[in-house]
């Protein structure tokens, strides 16, 4: 096969894959399209394009959702939680992985892993009971605060993040670390100067997964947060879901506004992945 023929096949194959991925995305078309329709239009035909592209539902949704406060809250909670999860989980996973043969490391690691199987529904009530009790006896605010929620996210996010990091520490040659020790470096220095930078691909993954989970999470914030000034975006969006009926147009508008920041975030974080691939190739 000549080089030109190979190139043509490559393009055809790529376009095919691209077309499939478009179909993969088609349900989101429904999402976008219905955020512009009136209730009557929705009732008549959910598949069609909207009659007019008015942004009125976006406006109404923005006001009722208290959008700026909600975005700020979601942002603070997501960013701080993720940073701290990365900080704590990467360190923990490295120590656990490097001491794999010791019983204490095995027990701790298995505990983290096992708890990933517990459905949140069984932890909900005791969690809130326990923390409200702490709040009452020790006197500082946990429930209905951002920092309380962040603390809980660190707790819930550790298991998965430690698990992810643990698997990838294996791909770091231990010889590099030993070289560092020979040079007289402390474990802190060895970790942050040698190991952590090499964990970049998996750190990207951990960041992306945690950010998306925390940003979109509804259940935990709904139980912990009550006051308007700390509410996150999912809580505000779900206010359009009534008991019998869902105000689809407003809900969709709210949802589009919810996922836009995440899309932008992913678009930016993606470039890191590309850089990672390039680095890998150069290695």
């Amino acid at each position: 096969m000549s080089e030109k023929q190979a190139k043509v096949w490559l393009w055809i194959g790529s376009l095919l894959v691209f077309a499939v991925s478009l179909i993969h995305l088609s349900p989101l078309y429904l999402l976008a399209v219905n955020s512009f329709k009136t209730r009557e239009e929705l009732y008549e035909n959910v598949l069609s394009l909207p009659k007019s592209l008015s942004f009125q539902y976006y406006q109404v949704a923005m006001e009722r959702m208290n959008i700026l406060t909600a975005i700020m809250n979601s942002f603070i909670i997501t960013v701080v939680s993720t940073l701290l999860i990365i900080l704590f989980s990467s360190m923990t996973a490295w120590v656990l992985a490097r001491h794999e043969d010791r019983m204490w490391a095995k027990v701790i690691y298995m505990t983290f892993v096992a708890t990933m199987l517990i459905p949140f529904q069984t932890l909900m009530m005791p969690l809130i009971q326990f923390f409200s009790q702490i709040q009452q006896t020790l006197g500082f605010q946990i429930i209905d605060t951002r920092q309380g929620l962040i603390f809980m996210y660190i707790g819930f996010g550790s298991a998965m993040s430690v698990f992810l990091y643990h698997g990838f520490v294996k791909s770091i040659p231990i010889s590099l670390e030993e070289a560092g020790y020979i040079d007289g470096a402390s474990p802190w220095t060895v970790f942050w100067r040698i190991v952590f930078p090499m964990l970049r691909p998996i750190t990207n993954t951990v960041v992306i997964l945690n950010v998306i989970w925390i940003w979109n999470d509804y259940l935990l914030p709904s139980l912990v947060l009550s006051s308007e000034h700390v509410k996150t975006i999912p809580l505000s969006t779900f206010s359009f879901f009534g008991q019998f009926t869902i105000q689809w147009n407003l809900a969709m508008a709210g949802l589009v506004m919810t996922i836009l920041p995440v899309i932008i975030f992913y678009a930016v974080a993606q470039r890191n992945i590309i850089r990672g691939i390039a680095d890998g190739a150069v290695k």
Partner: peptide, 12 residues
Amino acid sequence: TQLKTKLTNQTT
């Protein structure tokens, strides 16, 4: 569900 959870304690 939320009410039952929030009522568990006087402060919440």
